[in-house]
Design a protein around this nucleic acid. Structure first.
Lengths: 389, 389
DNA sequence: AACGTATCCGCAAACGTTACCGATACTTTT
DNA sequence: AAAAGTATCGGTAACGTTTGCGGATACGTT
């Protein structure tokens, strides 16, 4: 018969339904509910996962407490040289690897900086990453990178993941689609440092690292004008990005300064993509009265246009001047080299990283400048160097 | 006077040393040790860090237990629709973000795949990353990337960090310096899946994703030979990398097949770096009897050599044929386009990622093939297309 | 009534570390 | 020798989740 595990009574046991497919009993005497543990089903959940040696293992094997081990491993004070030595040796012997997860949980910090970039296809962001990586590694931080793939949705989900993983700070360059910034404001609210770079926006209270897009754009267009081009088109980026607006402003300013009239049908703001570049390029080159120069928002668009022009037999730079932006590696090598604006990509990364580190260290509100503007450089190559008229 | 906090005795209090620079007392009566809490130093560690709402907060505010909240949030069974609804609403209202760290700790998994690459400067690895990223994101995994910067030391410390962060799997492409593989064997021992790609090695039991380097190399050299080049030099990579050895083998095989004698002073194995490429290039081009073609281990080296040759007035492809490896973006645009081997970078990334996912899912030992070889493609451009003799 | 069943929820133990607060056992000073 | 100081160690509560195991209620069935 079945006996009550509590009062050892035998007579008062009654069935009392099922729990998880196991017969359940109740002892009417002591009102104790119970099920019979199935002896067949011994150790039902065995540790399949190999056990990683923990601090406790070390502690046990040399007969000290885990707090002692912890302190010894971290070179803390309050530990005698002998025990420290013993702990370190045992740790090495047992092949101990600290569990960062537990550490992170208790310290509420991860020593990890997150970075979200829209794309990897151009050389720009990889180079920024290299710069940031250098600084962060030096400071003992890890860098985890995500790619929003120019999609707002992905960007949002990326920030969520970053948040869930409790990164100590976020470096982000926005998607060309991004119009809503609530997902960034969450970081402010949580007090997690945030630095925007390159593709920045207003509407969010965070430091920004950019280049002097206005000046660069102005210089580029001025350069074209000084080389005798008159009817200069601008193939710009999406206007929700500050970069695009600044470059547009620079373009307009330069045109205005030199008294060139802007033909509005030759100012196009579009998305970044090869396909779009082809479409807009075709449009511009097929115009009744086509421009004699094009200032494009990036090198890949510029190159796309150059290739189309060459195909059509339009001579560069004589019949068409082209200037790009960013100085991709291929730009130096294409037909007549592509004149472009070189951005200090490594510097951007470094600056961004340094800034986030400062924000993390300084508990609250250092009054740093809201924005840092790095200098670009006009690289003149064949695509715009017209024999002076 | 000082009173004992326990027995309220006043007479029997004596000093009893210091703890952390604070005077310590003992009550001789009840043998109770204590320190005086400094009233000035009120709330010494105030919660500067903003409190993030936890599951417990939600539980309290709607009067259920935290286990109920947890189950509700995860769409578990055993929760009534009403409570689930209430929990979800409250979670949204309180702006709850799950703490992945705690989750990771209890589940012993992080849903994160680590990736270590030697460099970012060429387009190769970024493209691999794009491919891997796509697959992993789709499967709900995060990808965290580290850069070993072609340094063995950094690679080791990267693997340590990955280990500490308890990644679920590692994708790695080795440094050109890497000769010791103990840091990878740790992963085997721990049962953490590992996939090598591109820069792989023997000596470690893990799946490898590579391209058909031998065939590619053979094809490239054969192509040069068929274009009438006779004295073909090979600028290879460091021989501890399998890639380098395979490419060298392919080179030798092709030369042998067509009865070309190999002049051993024209076979150079060196490190990947622009500087080295320049040095070796100068050496080759300055040889008494210089080669009439060069097959280089990568495009940047090849381009470096092309530029040097052009500078010296050596005509490409007539006086010098050049073939590279990888098809960097700039290779299509340089002077006479650079003939090169296109690698399926995206595919490499995808394959690697798919493989690690399989390894994670299948508990132990699926007998997958040990190695996957992807196909490359010879891209013929101007640098090797000699007018047939 | 007495018993059986299904549904829903709570308790509490992990997960591995850190850090606060004491507690020993000595050594030194008075 | 008593009192005070020093150096070194331990106990244990967090950190925020998940989850196995039971408990409790409500309802259906003999």
């Amino acid at each position: 018969m079945i006996a009550c595990p509590k009062c050892a009574e035998v007579g008062a046991i009654m069935k009392a339904g099922y729990v998880r497919n196991k017969q359940r009993y109740v002892c009417k005497d002591c009102n104790y509910f119970f099920t019979l543990s199935d002896p067949d089903q011994i150790t039902p959940r065995k540790k399949t996962r190999r056990h990683q040696t923990t601090i406790i293992d070390i502690a046990k094997s040399i007969g000290v407490s885990n707090s002692t081990v912890s302190r010894a491993l971290h070179g803390h004070a309050d530990i005698s040289p002998e025990t420290r030595q013993a702990v370190l040796e045992m740790a090495a012997q047992m092949d101990y690897q600290p569990n960062q997860l537990a550490y992170n949980l208790v310290k509420s910090r991860t020593n990890t900086i997150g970075m979200i970039v829209p794309e990897f296809t151009n050389s720009f962001f990889p180079n920024v990453i290299i710069g940031a990586h250098e600084i962060l590694t030096e400071a003992g931080y890890n860098l985890t990178i995500m790619q929003s793939n120019e999609s707002y949705q992905v960007e949002v989900s990326n920030t969520r993941a970053m948040l869930a993983n409790r990164i100590d700070g976020l470096l982000i360059s926005l998607t060309q689609e991004t119009n809503n910034y609530d997902h960034l404001k969450v970081f402010e609210k949580r007090g997690i440092p945030l630095v925007l770079f390159n593709r920045v926006c207003d509407h969010v209270e965070a430091p920004k690292v950019v280049v002097n897009d206005f000046d660069a754009s102005f210089t580029a267009v001025e350069h074209l004008i000084l080389n005798g081009y008159e009817r200069i088109a601008h193939l710009g980026g999406p206007l929700n990005l500050l970069v695009s607006r600044e470059r547009l402003r620079g373009y307009r300013a330069a045109m205005e300064k030199y008294g060139k009239s802007i033909e509005e049908n030759m100012v196009i703001q579009g998305m970044f993509s090869q396909q779009k570049a082809r479409i807009y390029g075709k449009y511009l080159l097929d115009l009744e009265n086509r421009p004699d120069a094009i200032f494009a928002v990036n090198d890949s668009s510029a190159i796309e246009i150059m290739l189309m022009a060459l195909e059509k037999g339009i001579k560069i730079p004589d019949e068409l001047g082209v200037v790009g932006f960013s100085d991709n590696p291929e730009s130096a090598y294409i037909g007549p080299g592509l004149t472009t604006i070189r951005q200090p990509t490594g510097e951007i990364g470094k600056t961004t990283a340094q800034w986030i580190l400062q924000l993390i260290d300084s508990e609250e509100e250092v009054n740093l400048p809201k924005q840092k503007v790095l200098k670009t450089e006009l690289v003149v190559r064949g695509s715009s160097r017209r024999s002076q008229i």
